[in-house]
Amino acid sequence: MPLARAFGVAALALLLSLDCAADTAPALGAKLVVVGKSGTPSVEGAAQGIAEAKQQGEFLGQQFELSIVPTPDAVPADGVAAILTTGQDDVARELAKRHPNVPVLNLAAQDDALRARCAPNLFHVIPSTSMLNDAVAQWRKQHPDAQVAARAWHPKFEKYAASQLNLRFEKRFEHPMDDTAWSGWAGVKLVTDLIAQTRNAAPAMLVEALRTKLAFDGQKGSTMSFRPNGQLSQPILLVAGEKIVGEAPVRGVADVDDLASLGESQCVP
């Protein structure tokens, strides 16, 4: 065989094999770790989220896995796409510091001070105290005498397919979905959605994508994204007794799509 022709055949074979490789690329996989206790609402929420990610992954050839570990020390040093924490400020801070290139998602700690530190890899799924306070303040402008509580989620919330999510959670765990169960679900779902979209589970890339590319459907009717301080923007529910009386931003007080009207987004150096 003349050299040129042999080269041509080899090049063609290489092209074909590359083409093949593209079609039969190894399935994308990602492992998430949640630091918390089995049976707590936020860990159950995370389990609900991973079940839904697996369901989506079946159609896209993507595999997701969630490990539950009891303490920050038990988080593996490598091979983790994202870490979720159900602990308070100190745990969230510690995890973000120990794993600087991995996204750490705070599911439970609500302090504004934690957000103001603006750790580049720390993301807050649960609303901050100032978001909840602003939601109540907006409501009181219209209803000065109303006693309402601000919540991230409520098991009786029905709009925007919230009833579907509540139903799925109750079916699986046989009790209602509360605020931290929602943040657990949302934390897993927003990470796995982004991995599915970008087809990339590299943790450093995820930190960047969470900051810049997120357009998440938290089943509360608005597109959710992270603020510069790492807080997830989201509507807040207003509850009186066991009844949902409104949503914030409160129509008539703020633009319903102006999620920035709730809470802070500043970083304090």
Binding site: E52, Q55, Q56, F59, L60, Q164, L165, D193, A196, D217
Partner: peptide, 9 residues
């Protein structure tokens, strides 16, 4: 369309 899986089948 699967709303919560963001899929078109």
């Amino acid at each position: 369309t699967s709303e919560s899986s963001n899929l078109i089948h």
